[in-house]
């Protein structure tokens, strides 16, 4: 298994919203870290999970698969998934893989928080 080069910090913004600050590489090896961060946000009562991709350095197709399975889990829990901080390159990848149709993509943290309500 390739070494995991990912760090995620969970920030509780308010009772219903948490931001996951992603720094590093999102690949198939990142599953346990990503899901642990999601579980932490959910345990804190988050109804809206916002992914901050400003520190994303690398992502492969297994990483996209991971985001898809996370999205499904979030939808099943009646939560919402939003994102900001995507570079033009990663926006294109979200377009290619159609993740942008299911995840609310926003240009800034303020916009994502406003959309989260």
């Amino acid at each position: 298994m390739a070494p995991v080069k990912l760090d995620i910090t969970t920030r509780k913004i308010n009772a219903k919203t948490s931001i996951l600050d992603i720094r590093g590489e999102v690949t198939g090896s990142a599953e346990s870290i990503l899901m642990a961060a999601y579980a932490e946000a959910t345990a804190a009562g988050a109804q809206a999970i916002i992914l901050n991709f400003g520190g994303l350095e690398y992502m492969n197709s297994s990483g996209i698969g991971l985001l898809v399975t996370m999205l499904i889990r979030i939808q099943r829990e009646k939560q919402r998934l939003l994102a900001f901080g995507l570079s033009d390159h990663y926006r294109q990848i979200f377009d290619l893989t159609q993740l942008d149709k299911a995840i609310g993509i926003h240009p800034t943290e303020a916009a994502a928080l406003a959309a989260a309500g």
Partner: peptide, 25 residues
Amino acid sequence: MSEPTSQPATQLPSRDAANWAKPVD
């Protein structure tokens, strides 16, 4: 509550850029 983060003003080419296809119509 911590401070908001923002996107870097200049975007460097991603290491994975050559690995991905471009979106198609």
